[in-house]
Simulated scan of single mutants.
Amino acid sequence: MLAEEITALAAAGGAAVVQAAGTDVWTGFRQQVARWFGQGNAQRERAELERLDQTAAALEAAGAEQAERVQLRQEASWEAWFIALLESLNNEQQEQAAAELRTLLAQHALQGGVSVGQDGFAAGRDVNVRAERGSVATAVLHGDVSIGTPPKPDPSQG
Rank of each mutant, 00 (worst) to 15 (best):
W78E: 09
W78Y: 08
E79L: 12
E79C: 11
E79W: 08
E79H: 11
E79F: 03
A80L: 10
W81N: 13
W81D: 12
F82P: 01
I83H: 03
A84R: 14
A84P: 07
A84K: 12
L85V: 11
L86A: 03
E87F: 06
E87Q: 15
E87M: 13
S88W: 10
S88A: 15
S88P: 06
S88M: 09
S88C: 09
N91E: 14
Q93S: 14
Q93V: 07
Q93F: 07
Q93L: 13
Q94W: 09
E95G: 11
E95S: 13
E95Q: 15
Q96E: 11
Q96S: 11
Q96P: 00
A97R: 04
A97N: 04
A97G: 03
A97T: 03
A98Q: 09
A98P: 05
A98R: 03
A98L: 06
A99P: 02
A99M: 09
A99L: 13
E100N: 10
E100A: 13
L101M: 07
R102V: 12
R102F: 09
T103A: 15
L104D: 03
L104S: 07
L104I: 08
L105R: 06
L105G: 04
L105W: 09
L105C: 06
L105P: 00
A106L: 12
H108T: 09
H108E: 14
A109T: 06
A109L: 05
A109D: 10
A109I: 07
L110Q: 15
L110S: 15
Q111C: 09
Q111S: 12
G112F: 02
G112T: 01
G112H: 01
G112V: 01
G113P: 03
V114F: 04
V114G: 00
S115K: 12
S115W: 10
S115R: 12
V116A: 12
V116N: 04
G117L: 05
G117R: 04
G117Y: 04
G117M: 10
Q118D: 14
Q118H: 11
Q118V: 15
D119W: 08
G120T: 04
F121R: 05
F121P: 01
F121S: 05
A122T: 05
A122I: 03
A123P: 00
A123Q: 04
A123L: 01
A123C: 06
G124P: 01
G124R: 01
G124D: 02
R125S: 14
R125A: 15
R125D: 13
R125G: 14
R125Y: 05
R125W: 10
D126N: 13
D126T: 07
D126E: 14
D126P: 03
D126A: 14
V127R: 05
V129Y: 07
V129G: 01
V129M: 08
V129R: 03
R130A: 15
R130V: 13
R130C: 09
R130I: 09
R130E: 13
E132R: 10
E132V: 12
E132A: 09
R133T: 11
G134R: 02
G134T: 07
G134Q: 03
S135I: 08
S135L: 10
S135Y: 08
V136D: 08
V136C: 05
A137N: 05
A137H: 01
A137M: 02
A137L: 05
T138Y: 04
T138L: 03
T138I: 08
A139R: 01
V140E: 02
V140L: 02
V140H: 00
L141Y: 04
L141M: 10
H142M: 08
H142Q: 15
G143A: 02
